[in-house]
Design a protein around this nucleic acid. Structure first.
Lengths: 208, 208
DNA sequence: CATAGCTTGTGAATTACTTCACAAGCGCCA
DNA sequence: TGGCGCTTGTGAAGTAATTCACAAGCTATG
């Protein structure tokens, strides 16, 4: 299969969320035009995105809502359950552990790690905090697909090394630093400072 | 000034964070190559990004760390203080209100709104929850630059209307829906479900 | 069953973004 | 001062993403 751009994947995600809404409303079919309107893009873009994976629509009619949402779930790999560990038992980590959205989408948070001796062994959001030093050993018996990094900037580089050594191939990074990882590890960054600065830039440069 | 791509602004943000690190280490100059290495991009990209705003480097030497970080702060509009309101006094809103990163960067959270009668008037994270119905009136006396939306999906569309009517031109959206806003309003989305699905896609399609 | 009205799927055209490649400039040293 | 090594700034080239535009196909209707 040819390389799919990250922007395409983001849009697929978006289309899926609209489709799920429409599915709940009981809508049977939807056109690329309507999907585009909901997603703030163009109908050609929608059709191009979908055409990368097959042809799911009917000419003259549009797309079957349940069929297309099923296909998208399949494309996005949402059929299976993913095993997730959170690294960093601080505030952000805690907020994430409480976040219901993980489980709803089949992402099971099954362990928390931290490097702070004072926290290790403590009960925390239904889990027991483990030492990051044990991650590699643990991962041999208990598989992790995704590591969610909620560590302070300074300690993140070291943590990433351990996550990679544990064989984890996907990282959701909340630390405000850029990660260096081998090519077969996928990283997504969530960086609030960056988003705020983007807004600040937009406000400062309007109409120029 | 010509239109600046969002990807460029994100990188500027990233460069700034590296520069601040280097500044703390006391480094005096840095090359585009080093900046590129830190940011996972190329030196040509770094130079091109910066050249959109002026020429800040010295040939043969590189960039002065304090000078460039100052310029970037200026470009990104981080010189001033921005007034921020949070809309949605739920879990995510609370986590955001507690987040120290806002204030550190000059983003002052000065009000919280919600539509839930039960919450209105309650003391909450050093602020008093106000009714969303009052946002427009409040905004006339107390200026807000940025609205942070942490509302449930269903009620978000209505809230956006009120935010726009209140004259707010920048929105940081945590609700898992796409916002419809006039062209002069800038929106940045933070959508965890989308990030997780991106990782799920990557894990499902490795090596194809 | 023929026609009218829609909507898809997709090459081609366009636009946007990134990388190349090199002249020009700076600092250091003999 | 002149030459060398290094690094910027930037047109030109190349690559990637988006939009255009239209033939092809489906449904409904009389």
């Amino acid at each position: 299969m040819k390389r799919i751009a990250e922007s395409t994947v983001r849009r697929l995600s978006l289309y899926l969320s609209f489709l799920e809404g429409k599915e709940r409303e009981g809508l049977k079919t939807i056109s690329s035009d309507e999907l585009a309107r909901l997603g703030g893009t163009t109908s050609a873009q929608v059709r191009k995105d979908l055409s990368l994976f097959g042809s799911f629509g009917k000419r003259g009619l549009g797309y079957s809502v349940p069929e297309l949402s099923g296909k998208l779930r399949e494309i996005l790999g949402l059929g299976k359950e993913w095993q997730v560990c959170i690294v960093g038992a601080g505030k952000i980590g805690a907020a994430l552990a409480r976040y219901r959205g993980f489980a709803e989408r089949g992402f099971n948070v099954t362990a928390v790690y931290d490097s702070d001796e004072a926290k290790i062994g403590k009960r925390w959001e239904n889990l027991t905090v483990r030492s990051i030093a044990e991650l590699e050993r643990d991962a041999a018996k208990q598989h992790f697909d995704i590591a969610v990094l909620a560590t302070p900037g300074e300690s993140t580089a070291g943590v990433v090394k351990q996550v990679v050594r544990a064989g984890i191939k996907a990282i959701l990074n909340f630390a405000p630093v850029q990660l260096t990882v081998p090519g077969d590890v996928t990283v997504r960054n969530v960086n609030m400072a960056m988003e705020l600065e983007g807004l600040s830039f937009a406000l400062s440069n309007r109409g120029e």
